[in-house]
Computed example of a mutant assay.
Amino acid sequence: MTGPDDPPKSAKNAQNAAREARLAAALRENLKRRKAQERAKSQGGARDKGAGESEDNG
């Protein structure tokens, strides 16, 4: 049941692969951030800056 607006299957497969790659990268970054936060919490509560944040906010 494909309509005239449906992309070909190869394009859908490429889009799906790209989406899966983005999701996998996001999950890895999330896991790294959560582990860093947990380490900081267990070491006395030092605030974790997270990926990509700079020291000065101004």
Results as ranks from 00 to 15, higher is better:
6 D>N: 03
5 D>V: 01
15 Q>T: 03
13 N>S: 05
31 L>I: 05
5 D>P: 00
13 N>G: 00
51 A>V: 13
42 S>T: 12
45 G>C: 11
35 K>S: 13
31 L>A: 12
30 N>D: 14
40 A>N: 14
39 R>K: 10
36 A>M: 09
4 P>L: 08
29 E>H: 04
58 G>L: 11
56 D>R: 07
22 R>W: 12
28 R>I: 07
43 Q>D: 11
45 G>Y: 05
2 T>Q: 03
53 E>L: 14
26 A>V: 04
47 R>W: 08
57 N>E: 15
35 K>I: 12
9 K>N: 03
45 G>P: 08
13 N>R: 06
3 G>H: 01
3 G>P: 00
56 D>Q: 08
8 P>H: 02
1 M>L: 07
26 A>K: 08
48 D>P: 01
33 R>C: 12
13 N>T: 06
22 R>C: 09
40 A>L: 05
28 R>M: 09
1 M>G: 13
50 G>I: 11
14 A>D: 09
42 S>I: 06
56 D>F: 14
7 P>G: 02
49 K>A: 15
3 G>K: 01
47 R>L: 13
45 G>F: 08
20 E>M: 09
43 Q>T: 14
10 S>L: 03
14 A>K: 07
48 D>F: 15
6 D>R: 02
56 D>H: 10
41 K>P: 00
41 K>C: 00
11 A>V: 10
56 D>C: 04
48 D>Q: 04
47 R>N: 06
23 L>V: 07
56 D>M: 05
43 Q>A: 15
52 G>S: 13
58 G>D: 15
12 K>N: 04
17 A>G: 01
27 L>Y: 08
46 A>L: 12
28 R>E: 15
54 S>L: 13
36 A>R: 07
46 A>D: 10
28 R>F: 07
40 A>S: 12
49 K>V: 14
3 G>N: 04
9 K>Y: 02
14 A>S: 08
26 A>R: 05
7 P>F: 02
13 N>E: 14
34 R>Y: 04
26 A>P: 00
31 L>K: 07
5 D>R: 02
53 E>H: 09
21 A>H: 09
7 P>T: 03
43 Q>N: 13
47 R>V: 12
50 G>H: 11
57 N>C: 03
46 A>H: 05
41 K>M: 07
38 E>C: 01
36 A>C: 07
55 E>A: 14
16 N>H: 04
20 E>W: 01
56 D>W: 10
54 S>D: 15
19 R>V: 01
16 N>K: 06
13 N>K: 07
2 T>P: 02
53 E>I: 09
56 D>K: 04
51 A>N: 13
31 L>Q: 08
15 Q>E: 12
48 D>N: 10
58 G>S: 08
